[in-house]
Simulated assay, not measured.
Amino acid sequence: MLTLALSFAALVCAVAARPSLNYLESHTAENESEEVRSAAIKRLLEVFGMEDPPAIHGHKQPPQYMLDLYNTVADVDGVTKDPYLLEGNTVRSFFDRLRSEQVEFRFNLSTVARTEKILTAELHLFKLRPQATSTFNRHHFCQVSVYQVLDTSKSNNTLGKKLLSSRLIPVHSTGWEVFTITQAVRSWMVDEGNNLGLHVVVQTLGGSKMDLKLIRFASGRNHHQSKQPMLVLFTDDGRRSSAPEITDPNDFAATSSLPHAPMSGPPSRSARSLDYSDEDGMSMPCQRLPLYVDFEEIGWSGWIVSPRGYNAYHCKGSCSFPLGQNMRPTNHATVQSIINALKLIKGIETPCCVPDKLFSINLLYFDDDENVVLKQYSDMVAGSCGCH
């Protein structure tokens, strides 16, 4: 009897220890949901040209130049103002790695893909206010030359350098000075071993060396990050769209007579409810509806500087006969709708409601090396919808 009781108790314990059917179903659903989310995020990264999201190192302040550039080419929601404002589709910024007090600079370009075409490379130096000296009154201009270092053993000899850019600068001025150094960067991309850095030489108009107390550029060691030496690359990664974009900002609003939902945040409840109006049996005509992509919900807000999200919009509705001009139909769609209405051929569906204009967006973000990148992505926003 005791043996039977012990056997029964063991059975009860085994059943109790076994997961319930509901638990297993719930656990399986969670795993499947996580797999779908992981696959979706991976696919979205591919759309943005990345294999993995950049590592988050902390909250650094983006260079003011990159913020200003972003605001020049994009509106508050990241949508491109004019596709011809930006040279190429990618702008990368790099801070000096030598952090030397001397006029020597070196930049790590390992994050630049070999496939990217270097269009323009600029060295940005912040000229500080000159210190008061007896020579200040004698010199009003100086010659500033930027050299590519070819041989570090000849650092004090022009034979070990290649002149990249040279021009006159007012001695009394203060602010950013920009020098084009495209040739050097292109050679560095061909052979990383060629990247021995840059050297800046400051001379009087007569060719003699200037007093470094008179002409001073901010260094990465002793000055605020906002004034650090910076290399800016304008490149093209070959991912540009073949479809032309509208260049007149006013045309963007003219592409649809529908009310535009605010793009600075998620759509309102009333905007969302439009998406389901046809569930009541009232078939709506083809139109553009809100579709807000929130980078914070995706988990990307840590490395994306701007925008916080954007309204991609989507197209929904019927393309039933007769198709009015407000539905922006193609000739093919018009013929297809007629064939469908007359039932001349079996199995011919009505035309589809799809985007007929697409616009690019701009992303300002930190890469794995904490460099700030501005990138333009084509075909990201449905500008208007039509029957096709």
Score class of each variant (00 low, 15 high):
C319S: 03
R92V: 12
V373T: 08
D248Q: 08
N340F: 02
I298M: 07
P329K: 02
T182D: 15
G281L: 11
G324W: 04
E177A: 14
T111H: 04
F136A: 14
S93L: 08
L150Y: 04
S283E: 14
S378R: 08
Q148G: 12
M380I: 03
C385R: 03
I169L: 15
I338M: 11
F295W: 10
Y23D: 14
A17N: 08
Y23F: 15
A5E: 11
N195Q: 08
L233G: 06
A132Q: 09
K117S: 11
T334A: 09
S100I: 10
R43I: 09
L125A: 00
Q102G: 09
G383V: 03
K60L: 11
V149A: 07
S270D: 14
L150M: 14
A253Y: 02
C352R: 08
F295A: 00
S306H: 07
H199T: 07
S337C: 09
G281V: 01
G299I: 07
I338S: 01
D96I: 13
F321D: 04
E116L: 07
P285F: 07
L214S: 02
S242F: 08
V15T: 09
L2E: 11
A17R: 13
T334R: 02
K209A: 12
C286R: 03
E349H: 12
M380F: 02
S242V: 13
E32N: 11
F141D: 01
E192W: 00
I246P: 05
Y292K: 00
H314K: 12
E296H: 07
D251G: 12
L231I: 03
L45M: 15
C315S: 06
P329T: 00
R240F: 01
A312Q: 12
N31K: 12
L4T: 09
P63C: 15
H27M: 10
A243F: 15
Q64K: 12
E122V: 15
Y65T: 10
K346E: 14
A39D: 11
P244M: 10
A10L: 15
I215Q: 00
Y70G: 01
N22M: 10
T350N: 13
I338W: 05
E30F: 03
K60R: 12
T135R: 05
S241P: 11
A55T: 11
P355D: 07
H124I: 06
L164K: 00
V232P: 01
A132L: 10
K161V: 05
Y70N: 04
P307N: 01
C353L: 08
R272V: 09
D237T: 03
S273H: 06
R186W: 05
G386T: 02
A243K: 11
T350E: 14
T120A: 12
T350R: 11
L98S: 09
I339S: 05
L119D: 08
L363Q: 04
